[in-house]
Design a protein around this nucleic acid. Sequence first.
DNA 1: CTGTATCCTACCCGAACGGATAGGCACCGC
DNA 2: GCGGTGCCTATCCGTTCGGGTAGGATACAG
Lengths: 220, 220
Amino acid sequence: MNVQRDVQAMQKNSGAMRVLIADDHDLLRDTLEVFLEGEGNFETVTVATFAEAENLCLRGDRFDLVLLDYSMPGMNGLEGLKRMLDLNGERRVAIISGTANREIAEQALAAGAAGFLPKTLSGKSLVNAVRFMAMGEQYAPLDFMRAEDEAASNPLAERLSRRELEVLEGLTLGKSNKEIARDLDLREPTVKLHVKTLYRKIGASNRTQAAMIAKEAGLF
Amino acid sequence: MNVQRDVQAMQKNSGAMRVLIADDHDLLRDTLEVFLEGEGNFETVTVATFAEAENLCLRGDRFDLVLLDYSMPGMNGLEGLKRMLDLNGERRVAIISGTANREIAEQALAAGAAGFLPKTLSGKSLVNAVRFMAMGEQYAPLDFMRAEDEAASNPLAERLSRRELEVLEGLTLGKSNKEIARDLDLREPTVKLHVKTLYRKIGASNRTQAAMIAKEAGLF
DNA sequence: CTGTATCCTACCCGAACGGATAGGCACCGC
DNA sequence: GCGGTGCCTATCCGTTCGGGTAGGATACAG
């Protein structure tokens, strides 16, 4: 749909940091361009799909930083991040997302992302973060990482014991009781007990409901 | 469904159009402010949660247009839209969203929203849309409404038949095969068959995995 | 020391699930 | 017509699940 590419070749400053912005939200691309180029030290190129970003890099374009939207066409979650990182080990790649949670942010950072930018950031914070990352640092908003931490220990999780939480995590991964028992080094009847009791605590009547409730609550 | 409301309070001479923007994405709020006020004919007020927007309206502030983010804190999907509409029948309310699909857009418009703005819009299109809506028209991007028809069913859902999708939805609700059979007016063995075949199609090995995969894919 | 809470283990049983196989029916394109 | 596809139904079998009950180990507080 959005095949047009807004390439802005600003060569006013040979020392400018080149930033590639890949996001299917036109509005956000406009904003980032305005904010970054307003700083005078950035040169931005924007595309609307992962494929376009990939093509630019394959064609040999160099960027100090690549910003990838987590839920853009072709991105496929963290798959896109890994592929972009593989394209060039030197290229710094960051994830930007409006919906992703702490879990995904941590996975992205663990996979080698230069940073994670929630769209709740203000323009000013974002410019700082981009400069920070372009200089080789790893960035993630601390309040975001923390806020999710307490949100993770929500009222639902409070009522569960440590073991029950471990078992519940197994349920969300679609494991059988036997698999959970093996992974936690327990006997299967024990797992069944934990499963049964956590059903009562969270109001589930089978493992699928329990898994969905856990997901809805933002656990795991 | 063409709700052509009369234009009240068209303030073409007494002053700028007042627009309330409620979105938890700081970046987006900054952008909208810049773009709208840059037009010289808009006065914007921005808040980050539904509760703040509600308070402003309860306190008596008047706006020609209220923009509500579909997935902001307190919004609760279309609930927030309905509550905001109830607050004042004259107030025009539009939904803005980065993730919602055609289905939700249509529901919003049917519920009386002044418009639906995907965040894939460019700044220019958005200014036009806001002006359009503030003048009493109902707006929705045609290409979005059409494009979603082919793209709404994501790659995962493409491979499933209608029945299998219905069964899969039952799985995500934690229903047993028997319950699904009753709800869809089928025999239980039939449901079991659909369950089994959709396992193969989406790569699940039990109902919990199937439910999680469906959720991850954004279905239901 | 005794009561209490949490966790681990174990057994039984009826119900549901996962997998394989197979026949019937309606529709559509060749 | 014929084959292909999607959908509905059915039976069989072994495994897993959900629920109940019960006992033992550890730790901690009164």
